[in-house]
Amino acid sequence: MAELTYRDAVARAIAQEMTRDENVVFLGEDVAKAGGVFKATVGLLDKFGPKRVIDTPISEQAILGAAMGAAMTGLRPIAEIMFADFIAVCYDYIANEFPKTRYMTNGQVGCPLVVRCGGGGGSRFGAQHSQCIENWVMQFPGLKVVSPSSPIDVIGLLAAAVRDDDPVMFLEHKSLYATKGEVPDGEILDRLGTAKILRAGSDATILALGMMVPRSVAAAERLQAEYGVNVEVVDVRSLVPLDTQCILGSVAKTGRLFTVEENPRVLGWGAEVVSIVADEAFYDLDGPPIRITTPNIPLPAADQLEDMAIPSVDRIVATIRKSLAA
């Protein structure tokens, strides 16, 4: 058992999988010699050499296209798209190529690959380097979408993503890279499609993802300590596949649902979840499901503006108190 940062967990996960399977290769911009702009892949070049850890040109389409061709013919590539926002310049592969290949070819060929990227706000980078892009990628049948909130989940879910036979979008959060957590020694392997109840509660359910997970846990602790409200916090972790049973089970227990989403409001992942709960658990609800999101605006750069935009512990606490009249 050792304390590890989320950042170091990325490198450990990639190393674990590259050691296990020589078909795992890793490519991206500045990932090899520089160890990544977020320093999440330091040491991999030294350990595995330039044939397996590759610095690419600034060519996001070449990165994802090459990963796809390699995956179709037997390799297990991990491709890094540095900032999640850059997914927009290689969106064809996400939207049209990876997820449709298996279906269109009637199962002849698949794309077992992982695309990692660093998303999310809190770094004052402005509107083009701060976005959470879950809602850009979870709409395509055939694609899987995972977003870890802790070092141990980074390792376990990244390992599961690499071993999965479908294309997986692995959404890391930039503001979590420096956070720490206990991680056991040895191989770590988790399962895609599983949510995790981080804090049990009886009065309301919070569903959260990425950086919204630690904020939701902090909000739940304050609600308990200051207002006697006992909130269950579920880390959704995997949007596709979605662990609907865990979510419905929690809502059945608490009767109230709050989603905490960093993405701008329109068509955020919580909208789909709320729709499922409305369809399948309407009579378990004691009040309306409430989505706590970034408003529908581009993210600003300045401290006070960005802080106001992204759901904060204060906003989560205030919204839940108001709704529960606590």
Binding site: V25, K51, S59, Q61, A62, I63, L64, G65, A66, A67, M68, G69, A70, A71, M72, T73, G74, L75, P77, D92, Y93, N96, E97, T101, M104, T105, Q108, V109
Partner: peptide, 30 residues
């Protein structure tokens, strides 16, 4: 597409398969 004949797909988005062919060639080289 006919993988058994080496036809690894016909791509309907202009240019998408140029990097994809690179990836298959990269696998051969690797």
């Amino acid at each position: 597409t006919s993988v058994e004949h080496g036809v690894m797909g016909s791509y309907a988005i202009i240019g998408a398969h140029i990097p994809i062919a690179c990836g298959a060639a990269w696998r051969a080289q690797y």
